[in-house]
Simulated assay, not measured.
Amino acid sequence: MFREERLDVLHDLITAHPLATLITAGGDGLIANLIPFTLHVGREHGILRAHLARRNKQLDALREGAEALVVFQGPECYVTPSWYPSKAENGKVVPTWNFAMVQVRGRPQVFDDVTWVREQIDEMTNNHERHREHPWTVSDAPEDFIAAQLKAIVGIEIPISSIEGKWKVSQNRMPVDRQGVIDGLRAEQVCPSMLAAMEG
């Protein structure tokens, strides 16, 4: 009921919420880090690209090439039973949580190439700056400063081998209760991103 399989919808969530939890299992056990990713759609499921600090302990696990899990968290919101009109009928309601998320799996590749990393940073920055009135670009910083920063990071690429999503937006409730959640979110002015997801 909650499973989302449309690739364009999954890709849209990744693009809208690029800061994801990267999870690996290596010699040091399980490691998780929040990493901003860029999505490339040139392959069947797409490719994720990012960078991280050369001193990050997760880099060892990434270099081992074992499968990585990347979790993208979209809109989320607590749902009170008070929003359900059906509560008045029998009282058989409980709190829950609405959310949207995407899980991606793939085998990472590490790139120590400065040109590759610079291109990834330029792309990520441009993606987030392009809507600003005066966009900042990496080239706005002194070139020697950028060169020093690039020495401290490495790039990673994860060709997506599997992708799945889960959208829990009250679709398991009766229409009157689902509308009650929408009305409650709107009236209490909470979780605008979840309200948009439910109305969309």
Score class of each variant (00 low, 15 high):
P81M: 00
N126P: 00
W97I: 08
T96I: 01
V181M: 09
T96F: 00
N127T: 12
G155H: 01
V176W: 06
A187I: 15
A88E: 12
V104Q: 12
R178I: 09
K57H: 15
Q73L: 12
R186Q: 14
I153F: 01
I182W: 08
I156A: 12
G184N: 04
E67K: 13
H131V: 00
F111Y: 07
N98G: 08
W167I: 06
K57C: 12
S86Y: 07
N98I: 03
V176M: 14
N172C: 07
P75C: 03
R107F: 08
G74V: 00
L185N: 01
L185P: 01
P159S: 11
P95D: 03
P135I: 08
P142R: 13
I160Y: 06
R105E: 05
G155V: 06
E123I: 10
R105I: 04
E89I: 13
I182P: 13
A100K: 09
V71F: 01
N126L: 08
L52F: 15
V169A: 15
D122A: 03
A152C: 11
T115L: 02
Q120L: 06
W116K: 04
I153E: 00
I146P: 11
R173P: 00
G155P: 02
H131E: 13
F72W: 06
M101V: 09
C191R: 04
V110K: 05
R118C: 13
W136F: 04
R132K: 11
G155W: 00
V94C: 04
K166N: 00
P95W: 03
V110W: 04
A66C: 05
G91T: 02
A88K: 13
Q120F: 01
A61C: 05
K166H: 03
F145V: 12
W136Y: 02
D144F: 12
E157Y: 05
P108W: 08
R178Q: 12
Q171T: 07
D113G: 09
R105T: 07
I121F: 13
Q103E: 13
G180L: 06
P108L: 05
Q171P: 12
M101D: 06
A147F: 06
V138A: 14
A187L: 11
C191E: 06
T115H: 05
E164G: 01
G91V: 03
I182D: 10
Q109F: 10
D144Y: 01
V181T: 08
D112P: 07
E123T: 10
N56Q: 07
P85S: 05
G74C: 05
D140E: 10
V138P: 15
P175D: 13
K92N: 11
D140G: 10
A148V: 02
A100G: 13
L62T: 07
K57M: 14
E89V: 15
E188Y: 12
R54S: 05
K57T: 15
V102I: 10
S82L: 11
Y84H: 10
W97S: 05
D144R: 08
R186Y: 14
G184S: 01
F145I: 14
A141N: 03
S162Q: 12
S86Q: 07
V104P: 00
M174N: 14
S161Y: 00
I156Y: 12
S86C: 01
D122V: 14
F145N: 03
W116R: 10
I146G: 04
P95E: 02
W116A: 08
P75E: 00
H128G: 11
